[in-house]
């Protein structure tokens, strides 16, 4: 039975740069199954990040639709999209994007802080901290909870970013070149972690231009010229990986 969690239909996006219009996405479509590890590959400038931003509700498509669990993300109010980004989606970026004034634990708790009022935080912060420490355990940084981002290596920062993305137990993890700024060893560590979370049921959509990284996914699709490279029947191409999700969402 199909268990599609995310569906993008014919997404178009054009940016205006000065007087020139750059058509980044030209009818890109894709589907992701719950628990799937999907990789979108493509050359630099092919629109991978733009697609990822649109899937996560950070950017708005000019045309087309994105459905999450059957609901059109962009038919919802701005407030509902904010909640979507906070509760249903976790972002991991190439450059980590941690807040430099906060320590590791505080950075991880930030999505929780966004979703709590001052009053509810008073009652819920104990539990939130426990969850954050548990995640820190899983990414192997428990001892670094009080450190600032500038005291961590690139790999450690990315692990913190991963923990932050997962603190609200989102159904969907969107990763934008998460190993792009790391050396091979550290990149592999991050991929191991992603695989580990995926095996625990986490749906992951990752964009990368690195074929070796892409090989870790269940399925790979390629973005070429702003559209998913299609097969002859017009449906999105399947990944060249044989692996398929073998588990449901936890």
């Amino acid at each position: 039975m199909s268990n599609v969690i995310l569906k993008a239909r014919s997404v178009h996006k054009t940016y205006t740069m000065g007087k020139a219009e750059v058509r980044v996405l030209r009818g890109a479509s894709l589907e992701a199954q719950a628990g799937e590890f999907l990789v979108v590959t493509g050359a630099s400038g092919s629109g991978k990040s733009t697609l990822l931003h649109i899937l996560g509700g950070l950017d708005i498509p000019d045309q087309g639709a994105v459905e999450f669990e059957g609901h059109d993300v962009f038919a919802q109010s701005q407030m509902a999209r904010n909640t979507y980004r906070n509760r249903q989606v976790g972002f991991v970026f190439q450059f980590y994007h941690l807040l430099p004034e906060l320590n590791v634990l505080e950075n991880i708790l930030m999505p929780k802080l966004v979703s709590h009022s001052a009053l509810s935080w008073l009652t819920g912060r104990g539990q939130a901290k426990l969850e954050a420490m548990d995640l820190l355990d899983r990414v192997g940084l428990r001892e670094r909870a009080g450190h600032r981002p500038n005291e961590l290596s690139g790999g450690e920062r990315q692990r913190v970013a991963l923990a932050r993305a997962l603190i609200n137990r989102p159904a969907l993890l969107l990763a934008d070149e998460p190993t792009g700024n790391l050396d091979e060893k550290k990149g592999a560590d991050i991929l191991d972690l992603l695989s580990e979370f995926n095996e625990a049921g986490q749906t992951i959509v990752m964009v990368t231009h690195d074929a070796r990284v892409a090989a870790r996914a269940h399925r790979r699709i390629e973005l070429v010229g702003g559209a998913i490279q299609s097969k002859r029947d017009g449906s999105p191409s399947v990944a060249d990986s044989d692996s398929q999700p073998t588990h449901a969402l936890s």
Binding site: L58, N82, Y84, N86, F91, H97, V114, S115, R164
Partner: peptide, 16 residues
């Protein structure tokens, strides 16, 4: 500016 982007990515509203 970058921090603002991060905050919005994790669900903060414009008003927030």
């Amino acid at each position: 500016t970058r921090d603002i982007g991060i905050m919005k990515a994790i669900g903060a509203s414009s008003r927030g």
